[in-house]
Simulated scan of single mutants.
Amino acid sequence: MNTLSIRCIERTPERQNFMLFIDEQSLDSLLNIDHCEDMRFSNFDLDIFPVDKQRFPDYNHKAVIINTIAQFLGQAPIFTQFGSNRLVIYRCHCGSDYCGVISCDLLITQDSITWANIRYEDGSDSDDAADLDEIDVTPIPQLVFAKTQYEQAFANYFQQHVSML
């Protein structure tokens, strides 16, 4: 089985950026992307950043993170703008799924959590190889995690970084 960890890769007084690691290797490197540099995938719902309360008075970032964790754990309905029920891992900096996302099918059993068919998705019906080659994201057939280890990774992230927000 694979192991998951969620690590803070950049910390400033204003923000904390996180990355998923699979078996000690960044998910970015497995996908052949850099979500911190590539604006198409720079919106990671587990990052912690300040919110302009004057412009967005009702935005509750902690609630967004809690809902994201619940989606990763299969405890909340998965929402995408495509209606695909695929778990969004990374999305465009603008927040629109139609710019393209990295997503997967989330399969949960009593003992394991599987991310299946991890790939780029933009809501189009095109599976044309030429179109997908232009995206330059390496699809991953599946990652399988022991459920207890996976849940503990999210519990550690929440306890160390989110609970104090």
Rank of each mutant, 00 (worst) to 15 (best):
L143W: 09
P57F: 00
A116C: 07
Q142L: 08
P139S: 07
S124W: 03
P77C: 09
T80L: 03
A70T: 06
L30K: 14
I102P: 13
E37W: 02
Q25E: 13
T68Y: 00
C36N: 11
T114Y: 00
A116R: 11
D136E: 12
T148I: 10
S103V: 05
D97G: 14
Q75A: 07
I135V: 08
L87A: 08
L30R: 15
L27F: 03
A76E: 12
D111Q: 09
Q149N: 10
K62N: 05
I65V: 15
Q25R: 15
V137S: 05
T138M: 03
R119V: 02
I65Q: 13
I118Y: 06
G74I: 05
E24V: 02
L73F: 06
D23R: 14
Y59P: 04
F72E: 11
V88D: 01
N60S: 14
L31Y: 09
V137G: 04
C36W: 07
G74R: 09
I65S: 12
R40H: 12
D131C: 02
F82C: 09
D34C: 03
I140L: 07
L30T: 14
S112V: 03
P57L: 04
D52P: 12
I89R: 09
L143R: 09
S42I: 06
I140P: 01
S84N: 14
C94W: 09
Y98A: 11
I108A: 03
R40M: 05
G95W: 06
L106N: 13
H93V: 11
